[in-house]
Amino acid sequence: MTVIARRNLKLFFRDRGGVVMSFLSVFIILGLYVLFLGDTMRSGLPDVPAADFLLDSWVMAGILAVTTVTSTLGAFGTMVEDRTRKTIKDFTAAPVKRRSIVGGYILSAFVIGVVLSLVTFLLAEIYIVAQGGEWLPVGAVLKIIGLILLSVLASSSIVFFITSLLRSQSAFTTTSTIIGTLIGFLTGIYIPIGSLPEAVQLIIKIFPVSHAGSLIRTVMVERPMELSFAGAPAESAQAFKLDMGVVYQFGDTTTTMGSSILVLVGTAALFYLLSIALMARKNK
């Protein structure tokens, strides 16, 4: 299993173009934010102190959540390619267990997802500080790293399920494009959830990756919110959290970090079980 995982890692990181492509959605979101989305959002927060710090932290948190999906998607590209190029035949013709092969793909995708997300996190922090914000305190950094691990686990399970259905390279490319385009909307990054109609809000709220976004935002905007909402009433801070998807509301209940963590754990369990069931059926 580790041999196949190591091979996949080598293949992924040697294909420089592919690595850059995995960051493409991130660059697009960042570009849109720097060019005009940021200005629109800022105009909604007049007279708020440290508004840049707050919004930068918020958007970076969202980008981080998206990275957990796009990076694992790129990583599972190796699996689809092995299937379409029939390289997989050379594996199955050797006395190697099917589950070691599959385990190798998942392990490598997880490692790639974590590595790319950590790199994104580092770059995000540099950007925030360069724009006049503050570094995240050590405790929060550790929390983010933990959340990255969990988010990558959940995202990779969804991506693995989707890619295990794909049978051709063009199907994979199309799927990548669709996911890359939709993901920014589905996690409420391009447009904050508060500005969207009820139905769309519901889609965002039940999309598991949004909960990764909510968790990471909660940690990353904690400090800037202290600054921005220092003298403001508690209600306005809560309203901001709801509008920006730091927490979600279902009826009268508001999500907490605990509930969002549960969503991610449940997602990982559900999709990995589904994929295994699917594979077991196909092997018959």
Binding site: V3, I4, R6, R85
Partner: peptide, 30 residues
């Protein structure tokens, strides 16, 4: 599987890896 070797019609080694790396990866299946 342990007692046969196969040369497939299409090339099934990894283009981005060196021949040596390919041999070590595939060899570790045995």
């Amino acid at each position: 599987r342990s007692s046969i070797g196969i040369v497939f019609q299409d090339s099934l080694l990894d283009p981005l890896l060196t021949v040596k790396e390919n041999l070590f990866v595939r060899g570790s299946f045995y």
